[in-house]
């Protein structure tokens, strides 16, 4: 695809003062999004950014595009209405772990199931920030917060698992401060036709500082993360000395050059594989035994809901002919009284 450079990030900014806490990951995410939009080349007026409620959901106010800051959890439903009503618009949904996976969980899974063509940026900081520090559906078991002073007694959602379970066809993961890679994930999501989820591992500097510390620095990512690229062998490490291989029903980490393992033995990433089994395994990898997977993990083509809606209208209209209400009524049972 041609990169259209007619826009700069400034074209997508509004004049509003950005009010997130200093040091919040949201600043970096906003910058990555602006970069992605400028690079994608869709005009600001043809772009709609929809959000729910939460710190992350303030983002549309900072955009120079069309935007709608809606109600808690319902961003996906409202964005779906926008997209179906006018499929020409590029529709982005900005959401957080509480907005998307707690109160908005139902809309999230159904939006994925329908394959609505939305670019869903899920800012996952594993905490409720705007209500000042309660655990979220992605907080780990035992997490101590204001509403769980003795630790939570429940397991978290793992967003990717939910995406694949809901038949989502695109999932990417990135880190808030890793702006170039983050923007590339957002661009890939935008180019993907259908519901595309980008999970951004985000730091909340006030209520959950350090929750992403393993991957928040370049060094950390080199040690604890793997950047996946479609068609490339899955290697990682400071010196790219490690790789992933399949073992039984699972994956294993191997050191290249040890025990006769060569680069040729390393699994090659296939984001387009329709069967999501291995992609799911990649997405669920976590330390200390495995690196955290970053990049586009799944990217599979399928007809979108909004395309299918108009395709059906076109098919029925081709068969019956375009009709007005009057024509429809007159085609039914009528009688004349004179």
């Amino acid at each position: 695809m041609m990169i259209d450079n007619k826009f700069t990030t400034t074209d997508f900014k509004s004049d509003q003062y950005v009010r997130w806490c200093p040091g919040c990951g949201d600043h970096a995410i906003l910058n990555a999004l602006l970069r992605a939009m400028a690079s994608l080349g869709t005009a600001p007026e043809d772009t709609a950014v929809i959000s729910g409620i939460g710190c992350s959901s303030r983002l549309p106010y900072y955009m120079g595009t069309y935007g709608f800051h809606t109600i808690h959890g319902r961003g996906a439903a409202i964005a779906s209405g926008v997209k179906v009503a006018n499929p020409k618009l590029a529709v982005w949904q900005i959401t957080g772990d509480g907005d998307c996976l707690a109160i908005g969980g139902n809309h999230f899974i159904h939006t994925l199931r329908r394959n609505m063509d939305l670019n869903i940026i899920l800012l996952n900081n594993r905490i409720y920030g705007l209500t000042k520090g309660q655990y979220s559906p992605t907080s780990p078991r035992g997490f101590v917060s204001k509403s769980s002073p003795y630790g939570t007694v429940e397991d978290p959602f793992r967003p990717a698992e939910l995406v694949f379970g809901a038949r989502g066809e695109f999932f990417a993961r990135c880190v808030d401060v890793d702006i170039v890679h983050e923007a590339s994930c957002m661009e890939a999501a935008a180019r993907h036709k259908g519901a595309a989820v980008v999970e951004v591992l985000q730091n909340c500097v006030i209520f959950n500082n350090g929750s992403q510390s393993a991957v928040s620095t370049k060094q950390g990512r080199a040690e604890h993360a793997i950047y996946l690229e479609h068609g490339k062998p899955m290697v990682f490490g400071v010196n790219r000395e490690y790789g992933l291989m399949q073992e039984g029903f699972g994956l294993k980490v191997v050191k290249i050059g040890e025990n006769g393992v060569t680069l040729d033995d390393i699994l090659v990433h296939d984001a387009t594989c329709v069967d999501s089994t291995l992609q799911n395994k990649l997405a669920l990898m976590e330390g200390p035994d495995f690196p955290v997977a970053l990049g586009v993990i799944r990217d599979v083509k399928k007809i979108t809901y909004n395309e299918a809606v108009y395709q059906q209208i076109a098919e029925v209209t081709a068969k019956k002919g375009k009709r007005t209400l009057r024509e429809l009524i007159l085609a039914g049972k009528t009688w004349r009284i004179s």
Binding site: R74, A77, I78, G81, V82, A85, N106
Partner: peptide, 17 residues
């Protein structure tokens, strides 16, 4: 839609559009 809330919300989105 998946529920009543979404029925109304998606209509609001459609109205915005």
């Amino acid at each position: 839609c998946e529920d009543e809330i979404s029925g109304c919300c998606s209509a609001i989105g459609a109205s915005f559009a």
